[in-house]
Write a protein that binds this DNA or RNA. Structure first.
Length: 283
DNA sequence: CCCCAGGCTTTTC
DNA sequence: GAAAAGCATGGG
């Protein structure tokens, strides 16, 4: 596998990690830690990068037969990984992602970490680099929403919703551990998450897909709607993305992709669409 | 100045 | 019930 840089500095569950490209198909994970979340780091990383998922399970023979040109375009994205990220961090992060561009989303999350996260020192090639962990629920729960709004693109409603969500996690009213039970039906999981202000269908599905390991969850945003229209001739995709149309598109996607891995496939399609068609480079 | 960006909520018909 | 308008800012 490969990453699109010489190395990445990352903080996984408060553990600083260096991800380095060694050769074309080999990356190396460096860390001083032996365990993450009480799991041996090697085992944790294996699960974190969801290495057990094979794109050929998602885009099966019928897909390949019906969409030969698209399939060949997609194959260079088959090594793309969906990370099993922390559910709370995923929830807050995607609450920052409503109707704005990627660089503004990254800016918001960066400010949240810098202003309210813990400093983490890491040594890289003999030089000290300061990283920031994601702020704890307790920390964000205690912030005045008006103050926090400087980190949320000056959107006070978003800041208030983030504080409410952090408070919910801190006091146990939002039990993300319980929601990580794979036996919970997807529709039920989504409606539970949507009870929180600031979380609609799309963000609920993102939390499920990226934070709860639910690779069957299929978030539909403006890009997904576009490729469903262009690549799969969906008539619904030509209409505005109302809640009703969202559910129709969700059902359509499950007829195109292996339903159990629809979201994983959607993410591969998403990045292929953004990079090949929209010519966007930011992730 | 327009529209669009990994949408959700409130108002209005 | 479903559509329309408001939220916020930066970039094309």
């Amino acid at each position: 596998m490969s990453i699109d840089a010489e190395y990445y500095l990352s903080v996984i569950r408060d553990i600083p990690v260096i991800i380095k490209q060694i050769s074309d198909n080999i990356i190396e994970i460096q860390s001083d830690a032996r365990v993450i979340n009480s799991v041996l780091i090697a085992d944790y990383i294996k699960s974190y990068f969801s290495f057990e998922i094979d794109a050929n399970l998602i885009f099966q023979d019928d897909f390949r037969r019906l969409n030969p040109e698209l399939y060949s375009l997609l194959t260079s994205y088959f090594s793309l990984r969906i990370l099993r990220q922390d559910p709370y961090e995923t929830m807050i992060s995607f609450m920052c992602a409503q109707g704005i561009g990627m660089h503004l989303i990254r800016k918001q999350i960066g400010m949240l970490k810098k202003n309210y996260g813990n400093k983490i020192s890491i040594t890289l090639s003999g030089k000290e680099v300061i990283l920031h962990s994601f702020p704890t629920p307790e920390r964000l729960a205690a912030v005045d929403p008006l103050v926090l709004s400087s980190c949320t693109n000056n959107n006070r409603i978003r800041a208030k919703n983030i504080v409410l969500a952090a408070q919910g996690v801190a006091d146990g009213k939002i039990d993300l551990q319980a929601l990580s039970d794979p036996a919970i039906p997807l529709a039920e999981l989504r409606s539970t998450l949507c009870k929180n202000p600031g979380i609609g269908y799309k963000i609920a599905d993102c939390i499920a897909l990226f934070g709860l390991g639910r690779f069957d969850a299929f978030p539909i945003d403006t890009h997904v709607r576009q490729y469903l229209g262009k690549w799969f001739n969906s008539r619904t995709a030509l209409r505005s993305l109302t809640p009703a149309n969202y559910l129709i598109l969700d059902a359509e996607a499950r007829t195109l992709l292996n339903p159990e891995l629809a979201g994983y496939g959607g993410h591969i399609l998403f990045h292929c669409w953004r990079k090949e068609i929209k010519k966007l480079h930011s992730f």
